[in-house]
Design a protein around this nucleic acid. Sequence first.
DNA 1: TAGATTGTTAATCGATTAACAATC
DNA 2: TAGATTGTTAATCGATTAACAATC
Lengths: 206, 206
Amino acid sequence: MDRKQIPDIVVGRLPQYLRSLQRMYREGRQVTSSQELGERLGISAAQIRKDLSQFGEFGKQGTGYHIENLIQQLRQILHVDQEWEVAVVGAGDIGSAIVRYKGFTDRGFRVTMIFDSDPAKIGTQIGTFIIQDTNNLVEEIQKAGICIAMITVPAANAQSVTEQLIKAGVKAILNYAPISLNVPRGIFIQYIDPSLHLQRMTYYLD
Amino acid sequence: MDRKQIPDIVVGRLPQYLRSLQRMYREGRQVTSSQELGERLGISAAQIRKDLSQFGEFGKQGTGYHIENLIQQLRQILHVDQEWEVAVVGAGDIGSAIVRYKGFTDRGFRVTMIFDSDPAKIGTQIGTFIIQDTNNLVEEIQKAGICIAMITVPAANAQSVTEQLIKAGVKAILNYAPISLNVPRGIFIQYIDPSLHLQRMTYYLD
DNA sequence: TAGATTGTTAATCGATTAACAATC
DNA sequence: TAGATTGTTAATCGATTAACAATC
């Protein structure tokens, strides 16, 4: 029993901290405080200090946190001190946009494969990628040893794609299909559904 | 003090319930239970009953919930028993994909405007939409009375776009730019940043 | 030194779960 | 009636905040 159990809600805030710190770093800043970081993110300073203290003592009393150092620490903690290869399943508008997306650079990810089941798309190119047949998904992902995938197929196909991905050894899935997926323990899922996000706000509108 | 204060975390689950119920409805189902819904979503049955009971008594002992009725109730609660017009700012890959996205249908939203600041894009078409000049954003959004916008511009421009949107009367923003936005009270924001979602999972991978 | 800010503890606050009477 | 499932209460569990000694 070495590793302390970190609440998932804490883990969820770390990438936000990292993103803000990387921004500060690009702005040429050297040092920040829990208070400043908290103001940028809308999170209390106490919360940030408590979250970070779960992993070590990264700050200095009277001074705050050295930005470059804290970035390195967080990258290690989140395992993005490496570049993960990512497979995209579904070469529609969203899948294509993801393949072209520049925002994974320096954040730990690189899309390296895209699949579709439409014969009209298979073999054609998106940027520098050739769209591969979903029928070869398990084999290709396994061969490449890829652990992370994004699903951008229609809702009706998402569960079966998920099962194939798991068979191929994928452990983490970011799902853009508007449906809840069923996965065994040990497989991690995150969801992006813009309608869901919007509905969460319309509750407060009239 | 009439309206009970509902925790935001509860509000956040309602759209998930709605989405699952709409799926069941399309599958031809008439009735469900908190237990079944919970299994589909990975949420405890007690939680679902408690959440729903904040808004009324929608179920029947021994039977469960009438799906069609509960859908209507949730649509009213979330204010998606209407269709909200949505403006998109940024006509890059993501903005274009959103404009073409079919997934807003029956969920309460319809994209009706798209803006960009690139002279090469302004005036050209995406599907049936003509890309408008961001310089006219405030005027056009105000004129149309639009309350909801999505931001898909580069991070460097996102804060200034946000300020223009607020000036135009927008109250709810879904932000795809990988940056925390500063907004006054009364403006609602949701974030979509795939890197953030992925980093939340890589913590658990090794 | 004086001022600032951390890491941490204890107190508070809020969310989830278990359990069950009510009732369809 | 017997079985199932709700709505709700009380108990448990977990997360956030306030406060402050330590110390740079």
